[in-house]
Simulated assay, not measured.
Amino acid sequence: MKKAMKKEYWDVSDEQVIEKTGKKIDYWIQILTAFEAKTKKSNEVVSHLQNEYQVPRYWARTLTTLFLKSDGRAL
């Protein structure tokens, strides 16, 4: 059984994301949409953000979860 993820983990503000990544949430939504993140495993998406955009692991995971929970729509 999967452990439920706390909403606080992915319910972040633009200000928090900008502080940690230098970009707004909508920017990352566009990046993940272009990467077709919905069709990939979450670990692959996290690695992509880390390797291609130097996003810290915690924030790469947060952005991936946010994207998947938002159904890929801009927030």
Rank of each mutant, 00 (worst) to 15 (best):
L66E: 02
N43V: 12
I31Y: 02
W59H: 04
R57A: 14
K2Q: 08
W59K: 02
I18G: 00
L32M: 11
Q30W: 15
P56R: 06
K20C: 01
Y58R: 11
Y53W: 14
K38E: 14
I31T: 13
A4F: 07
K20G: 00
A74N: 07
L75K: 07
K69A: 12
L63F: 05
T64K: 10
Y53R: 07
E19L: 05
I18C: 00
A60H: 04
N43I: 06
E52K: 15
L49R: 12
I25K: 05
K41P: 05
S47W: 09
K6I: 14
L63V: 06
V17M: 06
Q54N: 15
R73P: 01
T39L: 11
N51E: 15
G22Q: 01
T62H: 02
F35Y: 14
K3L: 13
K20L: 04
K41Q: 11
T64E: 14
P56E: 02
V12C: 05
K40N: 02
D11R: 05
T62F: 01
L49F: 11
W10Q: 09
L68Y: 01
V17Q: 02
T21F: 07
V12A: 03
A37Q: 02
F35M: 05
T65L: 12
K2V: 13
S13E: 05
K7P: 13
I25L: 13
D14F: 01
L63D: 03
R73F: 09
K41Y: 03
K23A: 02
Q54I: 06
K3I: 10
Q16P: 05
T21H: 08
R73M: 10
T64G: 09
Q30I: 11
H48F: 15
D11E: 10
K6A: 15
V17K: 04
T65C: 12
H48C: 14
T65V: 13
T21E: 10
W10H: 12
I25S: 03
E52S: 15
M1C: 04
L75W: 10
L66S: 01
I18T: 03
T62D: 04
E36H: 11
G22R: 01
I18Y: 06
Q30E: 15
V55N: 07
L49I: 08
I31V: 15
V46F: 10
Q54E: 15
S13M: 06
H48N: 08
V45G: 04
N51C: 09
F67N: 06
S70V: 03
T39Y: 05
K20Y: 00
L68F: 03
T33N: 11
T65I: 13
G72C: 07
D11W: 04
Y53L: 13
R57C: 10
V55L: 12
W10C: 14
G22T: 00
T21Y: 07
F67M: 03
Y53G: 04
N43S: 10
W28A: 11
Y27T: 04
L63M: 09
E36P: 00
R73I: 07
A34G: 08
T21I: 02
T33F: 00
K41F: 00
S42L: 09
I18R: 07
D71Q: 12
D71Y: 09
K38V: 04
E19K: 10
L75D: 11
W10R: 08
E19A: 08
M5T: 11
K2W: 14
V55E: 10
E44T: 03
I29S: 07
L75T: 05
Q16W: 01
Y27I: 03
E52N: 14
Y9N: 14
N43E: 09
K41G: 13
V12D: 03
S13D: 06
D26Y: 05
A34M: 04
